[in-house]
């Protein structure tokens, strides 16, 4: 198997946190020859899903005068509903389940991955820092755009690649450019989330290695390196919480913009 244990080579390896390990001896589970081991990544997907489900249960009280929890859930659904109405219009309503699931699942994954559970010996795994995971979501979004586009407009969907008022001789060139920019969408969608999450986690890990290394090198280096790094880490943690929300929002926003293209062409 290719599960390499890079962590043993260096003291603090900032990449080790992204290592996937099969859990509970499931590394030989497979379906049709494909390995489907239940890994730490799958575990954190499951945890995100369960926490999300528990969060949503608070919104199911359906009281006329909502409590705080119900209010939180309603503000989340209202937020996505507003976004869909603003970007797609009234047809956006039928995409609410997908876009809402997408937004909340990514948001919870990002936030849970930031929890300082390492203090109690549990190592959170941010599966949104794996392009395999984000790629699946990106391809799902892109597939929905393609299916809706061709279902609603048939071959007329290709007119998406020719903006209104394009001069006739420019049409072939514009078509190719627009087609390429369209086909790049799933990659940009998946990679943006993956890169943002990975970069933040690597940065925190590198800074924490500075803190530990400085502290080990004596009091002088601790004052010079460790303490400033630690203060910077606190600030970057706040930034990462922001990024966790923003990246989930961007993913959902771009998905709804692409769905708008499929629904209305131009």
């Amino acid at each position: 198997m290719g599960f390499s244990r890079v962590a043993t080579e260096a003291k603090v390896d900032p990449m080790h946190q992204f290592t996937i390990e099969p859990l509970f001896g499931t590394d030989h589970w497979s379906i049709a020859g494909f390995n489907v081991a239940f890994t730490n990544s799958a575990l954190w997907m499951l945890i995100s899903a369960v926490v999300l489900y528990a969060f949503m249960l608070g919104g199911m009280k359906r009281e006329l005068v909502p409590g705080r929890w119900q209010m939180m859930v309603e503000s989340m659904t209202g937020f996505i509903e507003d976004m869909l109405r603003a970007n797609v219009g009234k047809e956006g309503r039928k995409y609410l389940p997908y876009v809402f699931s997408l937004f909340m699942f990514i948001l919870f994954a990002n936030l849970l991955g930031l929890l300082p559970l390492g203090l109690v010996g549990i190592h959170p795994f941010t599966f949104t820092s794996h392009f395999t995971a984000t790629g699946v979501l990106a391809i799902l979004s892109f597939s929905i755009v393609l299916v809706v586009g061709f279902w609603k407009h048939g071959f007329h969907f290709f007119s998406l690649f020719v903006p209104h008022g394009t001069p006739l001789p420019m049409i072939p060139l514009i078509f190719v450019i627009e087609l390429v920019s369209f086909l790049v969408r799933p990659f940009s969608l998946g990679l943006r989330l993956f890169v943002a999450m990975m970069a933040g986690h690597v940065l925190l890990e590198v800074l924490s290695s500075f803190v530990i290394g400085g502290a080990n090198a004596g009091a002088f280096f601790m004052g010079l390196v460790s303490i400033p790094s630690f203060i910077l880490m606190v600030a970057i943690c706040a930034l990462e919480i922001l990024v966790a929300g923003i990246q989930a929002y961007v993913f959902a926003l771009l998905t709804s913009l692409y769905i708008n293209d499929a629904e209305h062409l131009h």
């Binding site: 198997m1 290719g2 599960f3 996937i20 099969p22 497979s30 379906i31 494909f34 390995n35 489907v36 081991a37 239940f38 890994t39 990544s41 799958a42 997907m45 499951l46 599966f127 794996h130 395999t132 995971a133 699946v136 979501l137």
Partner: peptide, 11 residues
């Protein structure tokens, strides 16, 4: 190579 199928499946 070793993990993509598991990631995609569980995702």
């Amino acid at each position: 190579a070793a993990t993509y199928s598991s990631q995609v499946f569980w995702m």
